[in-house]
């Protein structure tokens, strides 16, 4: 125990810099994923033929294959087509694309739940189709999606760990380096696990807190979590 504590304290600055990278990747992936997810969700529900098919293919492909597979495709596969990206770019793109596919389905679920009635009501007062989508449907759909969506940041944070396999210097990569240095893999990965644990539950608490702040009357019944 004291050996573990010593290791933990000795490498804490190193681990924390890795944790910083982990949080950065999470934030980037979440943001990119939101934009992609919104586009794909709109495409799948309201898009024309091309936009719709591209959205469906994107969502199904990225949800139907492992994240690590996607990371390797971008990192090792794309250079075969003459496109070479830095490992940080690959991590950012893979996490954003992957998260986007999941976020698209959360959003699509709530867009469908809003229903045709709201579209009819919007069109009836003379709004165009897209004006109705942006001013009537999306504001409701996004609020409705919050409870399910609130799991995504934590889920993505946990997903970021796989990018150590292309040597992006995040928390897991730091733990691996420490393991090589100390010959104590279990202690090193436990130290990383401890920091992940703290980050995951802090983020979870933050999401629950903001969720309770975002509740508006009529939408609270959906506020259940998986």
């Amino acid at each position: 125990m004291s050996a573990f504590l010593e290791l933990f304290l000795r490498f804490l600055p190193d681990l924390l810099s890795g944790a910083g990278m982990t949080l950065l990747l999470t934030a980037e992936g979440l943001t990119a994923g939101f934009v992609l997810g919104l586009l794909a969700a709109l495409g799948r529900t309201y898009g024309g033929k091309l936009w719709r098919s591209v959205s469906i293919a994107y969502i199904e492909l990225f949800r139907g294959t492992p994240l690590l597979m996607q990371v390797f495709m971008l990192y090792y596969g794309l250079p075969g087509l003459g496109i070479t990206l830095s490992r940080e770019w690959v991590a950012f793109l893979a996490l954003g694309l992957n998260s986007g596919a999941y976020q698209a389905e959360y959003l699509r679920g709530s867009i469908l739940a809003i229903g045709e009635g709201q579209m009819l009501a919007g069109r009836a007062i003379g709004l165009s189709r897209w004006a109705t989508i942006f001013h009537i449907i999306l504001p409701q759909a996004i609020r409705l999606a919050i409870p399910a969506w609130a799991n995504e940041p934590v889920s993505l944070l946990k997903s970021t760990a796989v990018v150590f396999l292309i040597a992006v210097p995040e928390l897991m990569a730091k733990a691996k380096a420490i393991a090589a240095k100390t010959y104590d893999p279990i202690g090193s990965y436990l130290a990383a696990a401890l920091i992940y644990l703290v980050m995951v539950y802090l983020l979870d608490a933050l999401m629950k807190w903001s969720e309770s702040k975002a509740v508006i009357p009529g939408f609270e019944s959906e506020a259940k979590r998986a």
């Binding site: 946990k158 796989v162 897991m172 696990a193 992940y196 995951v200």
Partner: peptide
């Protein structure tokens, strides 16, 4: 609360 890959290791 811990990523699967970390637990796996």
């Amino acid at each position: 609360g811990v990523p699967p890959i970390v637990l796996l290791f």
